[in-house]
Design a protein around this nucleic acid. Structure first.
Length: 243
DNA sequence: AAGATGATCAACCGCTCAGGC
DNA sequence: TGCCTGAGCGGTTGATCATCT
């Protein structure tokens, strides 16, 4: 109806709208969002209703901070698939693609900006791969040396190719690796299949030496921050000198 | 205390794709 | 075959909150 379309609402949802949407879905189920919006008496587009339900009202939506385990998995999966947020979100039950996308744009891209490089650049990918991820592993493991964490991360982590990585239940039994990233993946579903080998999570062979950008003695001398934030001002400064 | 600035995240927009007719 | 509709995805915006000066 034309009058109804003119009155379509946008912007933040009210409690009443939320209640109407939840009640309707509880009785009738989801889907057919345009007609659902009309039948539920909501002056919203079907698209808006779908988004509100999926990203906020669904009972299994998980809120709160992204844990180090989740951060590690996000970094790992993004290195494989890039900005394919919905695909990445499949590995985080209760997390929405929107939430993961926001995390990446705010936290991860912020670090890239600090380092004055592009988040999609090889330089930044190296920082993520060789510095950030090992540090997260350290934190997840409750301490230990950086080198041992990196070694664990690098040696036992299998390669997963785009064609292999179809997150489906029948593939989950193959996830029998001792690597940290893999054991993390195993906590989530759907789980990616694996194939063995001494490969880096990105799929390529683990390099014999670190990239040139990080092959400098100061890095080994660096005192890693013990606080909540993985990156200190000194970290940023040191890395910037290498770029 | 108040304004400026930055970070976060809910919501919107434009586009693509699949399925039905 | 082409059109329409529903659904989903990724990029972007804007409101709100926190922190800084």
């Amino acid at each position: 109806m034309e009058v109804q379309e003119l009155e379509l609402r946008s912007g933040p949802w009210t409690r009443e709208e939320d209640r109407a949407l939840m009640n309707y879905i509880a009785v009738n189920g989801e889907g057919k969002w345009n007609s659902l919006a009309r039948r539920a008496g909501l002056r919203r587009t079907g698209k808006s209703c779908r988004l509100r339900w999926l990203n906020y009202l669904r009972p299994d939506v998980r809120r709160g901070n992204i844990t180090p385990e989740e951060q590690l998995l996000i970094l790992e999966l993004h290195s494989r698939w890039g900005n394919r947020w919905s695909k990445i979100a499949q590995y985080f039950p209760g997390r929405t693609d929107n939430e993961i996308k926001n995390y990446w744009r705010t936290r991860v891209q912020r670090h890239a900006k600090q380092l004055e490089c592009d988040a999609g650049s090889q330089q930044f990918r190296d920082v993520v791969r060789y510095l950030w991820m090992p540090r997260l592993l350290e934190r997840i493991g409750g301490g230990g040396s950086r080198t041992s964490a990196a070694a664990e991360f690098g040696i036992a982590t299998p390669a997963i190719t785009e064609t292999e990585a179809k997150p489906s239940p029948e593939n989950s039994t193959a996830a029998a690796s001792s690597s940290s990233v893999d054991s993390l993946s195993a906590q989530f579903s759907p789980q990616p299949p694996v194939s063995g080998g001494l490969m880096h999570p990105g799929g390529e062979l683990w390099p014999e030496s670190l990239p040139k950008a990080f092959d400098f003695p100061d890095l080994e001398q660096m005192v890693w921050p013990a606080g909540e934030d993985l990156w200190s001002a000194d970290d940023i400064w040191l890395l910037q000198q290498q770029f």
